[in-house]
Computed example of a mutant assay.
Amino acid sequence: MVEQEEIQEEVEIIEETPEEVVEETFLLPNIDLSNWKVTLPTGSPDEVEPPEISDYATDDRLLPYMYNDSTDGALVFYTSPGSSTNNSSYSRTELREQLVPGSNSTNWTFTEGGTMKGTLAVDEISKDAEGKYHRTIIMQIHGRLTNAQRDLIEEDDNNAPPILKIYWQNGKIRVLTKVLNDLTASDEEILHTDAWSDNDGYTFSEEIGTNKFILEIIASEGRLEIILNETESIIYEDIHMEKWGVFENYFKAGNYLQTKDEGSFARVKFYNLEVTH
């Protein structure tokens, strides 16, 4: 017998691992634009209403001023000095509530009530020549005359004062509401814009800086409440709020820059925005 020597060759098997695939995640804001139009700092000024506003991600008119930041799921409102509305000298990229899409004629009263709640951040804003931050309005409740009220006081438009303006100012949230100059004014007299003035205002204690925060507005008959980060709130419940009940109202949200300084700008991010009535 001839012994056969079995020679086993050790073969090194190298398993190739596929290249690591990095999946990009795109985040979108939680905002339904069906009942909002937007005003831009361009044109005279330009406005985009529903349903066209829903195509903002591909609309060349909107792209420089209203666009998605898909890295953190925000809808960005960018503005700098440019075109302004008839009743202001400042520019804005700001949403205006429309209860009936495409129409400004249907609005709500404090008796009917309404809430607006948003998560947002003012992550970039310019400074003035002295190194102080500019300020911007991020939320509002604006008044509106009915057609009958407009005709009664012989006005050219339906504009009424904003009962509420909420500012990002020096890294804090500041609130201004209106007070009636003369509490004995007649029902007709209080319809005039110059019958109302800003109150002394209220600044929330929390410093929010450029961080994300939650802001909620609750309007009801004779009462207005503003809540920051679900912890600190300011309530207005007085004769001025009662008198305000004569007006119709609508919510506004976005970036209404309060300066015309050359080179100034602001960028406001909204992560979600909800309105209920």
Rank of each mutant, 00 (worst) to 15 (best):
M1G: 15
E6P: 00
I7S: 14
Q8D: 14
E9Y: 08
E10P: 00
I13F: 09
T17M: 01
T17Y: 02
P18G: 15
E19G: 08
L28R: 12
N30A: 13
L33F: 14
S34E: 15
T39I: 05
P41H: 14
G43L: 07
S44K: 10
P45K: 09
D46V: 03
E49P: 02
D55Q: 04
D60P: 03
L62T: 02
L62D: 03
M66K: 02
Y67V: 04
D72V: 07
F77K: 02
S83K: 03
T85M: 05
S88G: 05
S89C: 04
Y90A: 02
R92T: 02
T93V: 09
E94A: 04
R96A: 07
Q98I: 02
N104S: 06
T109N: 08
F110Y: 08
E112P: 01
E112F: 05
E112M: 04
M116E: 15
K117D: 10
G118I: 03
I125Y: 08
G131I: 05
R135K: 13
I138Q: 13
M139Y: 14
Q140Y: 05
I141Q: 06
G143S: 04
A148K: 10
A148W: 08
I153R: 09
I153V: 04
D157P: 00
N159P: 01
P161K: 10
P162W: 01
I166P: 02
N170F: 05
V175S: 05
T177E: 14
K178L: 10
L180M: 10
T184K: 09
S186T: 13
D187E: 15
D187Y: 10
T193Q: 13
D194R: 12
S197R: 06
E206N: 07
I208N: 11
G209W: 15
T210C: 01
E216I: 00
E216R: 06
E216W: 01
A219V: 00
S220A: 11
R223K: 14
L224T: 06
E225V: 01
L228M: 07
N229E: 12
N229R: 11
E232S: 09
I235K: 13
Y236F: 12
G245F: 05
G245M: 04
V246T: 14
V246E: 05
F251G: 09
K252C: 10
N255P: 05
Q258P: 03
T259A: 09
K260V: 04
F270K: 07
V275T: 10
T276D: 15
